[in-house]
Amino acid sequence: MQTFGQFIRARRESLRKTDPTYSVRQVAKRMGIQPSYLSKVERGEVSPPSEETTRKLAHELGVDSDMLLAMAGKVSSDLQDVIRKRPVLFGELIRELKEMPDHAVLRLVREVRDGEW
């Protein structure tokens, strides 16, 4: 299984093949972090970054922020808040869903409803 750093590097290098602005230097610049720090993250020499920086990285690399946070061993703070508000309900719900196949879980994803206009 790919580590967090390996995944980041693979994704960035993949984007860089068609867009040179995905160099370490330019990605770091857009995110407002030091290129050397991003490089260390990619090499696994430092722990995965904070939630805020991981979110920026997910946005920059066009990947889902919840997935990237999970790879970094974190749970998004907004999800933590959701669970804290109704811990029993959401605890039960998540346990119920854990063995469910993806397509069944996806049926629960909420779409924005379009009406008549």
């Binding site: 924005v112 409803r113 379009d114 009406g115 008549e116 206009w117």
Partner: peptide, 20 residues
């Protein structure tokens, strides 16, 4: 926010339109 989450407090037309 989803219009449907606050439907009871919104105009009928908004519910009909759906959306956010």
């Amino acid at each position: 926010r989803h219009v449907d989450d606050f439907a009871s407090r919104l105009p009928e037309l908004w519910k009909k339109h759906g959306g956010v």
